[in-house]
């Protein structure tokens, strides 16, 4: 009888250990997503320059308004975003951006920044501003949704030639964008 119990217990333990071992698949998975409530008729852009890793939305060829988003599994940036204030983050980002501004010929680049800590593991950093390119004023709003697991960069761009009402609606939409991260 004792032998039977010992064998049963050993077998049960083995099964338990095995099941634990076998279930050691991917763990600690995170899903980053965004939701954009919208009243506008956004169409996903698939023309030249579009790449699969990014979503680019437009309101048609007649309206130079673009909304884009991409997700990056970058683990490095969280600590920096979490440990710095808005001014410092902005200064760091801008120093990188300036190189491209020089090459692209941007003038009068101006921006405001804000930081919103949604939770202990979610930060939204926002830059809103404008610049001139070929004497045309370009406006933009960028949102960085940063988590310890990755980043979503989303951006809304329009110009002074854009339909003001549409641009305004697009901004309203963009303001309402919601980000979410889920752990599995």
């Amino acid at each position: 009888m004792k032998v039977f119990f010992v064998f049963t217990i050993v077998a049960l333990l083995s099964v338990l250990v095995l099941s634990q071992t076998n279930s050691s698949g991917p763990k600690n998975m995170a899903t980053l997503s965004y939701v954009l409530p919208s009243q506008l008729d956004w169409e996903q852009y698939t023309g030249d320059g579009a790449v699969e890793e990014m979503q680019i939305y437009t309101l048609g060829d007649d309206h130079p308004i673009r909304l884009s988003a991409t997700q990056l599994g970058n683990p490095h940036l969280w600590e920096q975003f979490a440990s710095m204030d808005a001014e410092k983050i902005y200064a760091e980002l801008l120093s990188g951006k300036k190189i491209i501004h020089s090459i692209a010929g941007y003038k009068n680049w101006q921006a405001n920044k804000s930081i919103e800590k949604k939770s202990s593991k979610e930060i939204i950093f926002e830059i809103t501003g404008h610049f001139e390119e070929k004497k045309e004023k370009n406006f933009f709003t960028e949102k960085y949704y940063v988590t310890p697991y990755g980043v979503i960069i989303s951006s809304l761009n329009w110009t002074e030639k854009s339909n003001p009402k549409l641009a305004e609606k697009a901004q309203d939409d963009f303001e309402k964008i919601e980000f979410k991260s889920e752990l599995r």
């Binding site: 919208s38 009243q39 956004w42 996903q44 599994g73 697991y149 752990l183």
Partner: peptide
């Protein structure tokens, strides 16, 4: 090609990404 229905005031969009921590 993502196209929303005009006039729909609750159009939402998600772009989920799964990453391993």
């Amino acid at each position: 090609t993502a196209k929303t229905a005009p006039g729909n005031n609750s159009v939402t969009g998600t772009s989920p990404m799964t990453v391993e921590i």
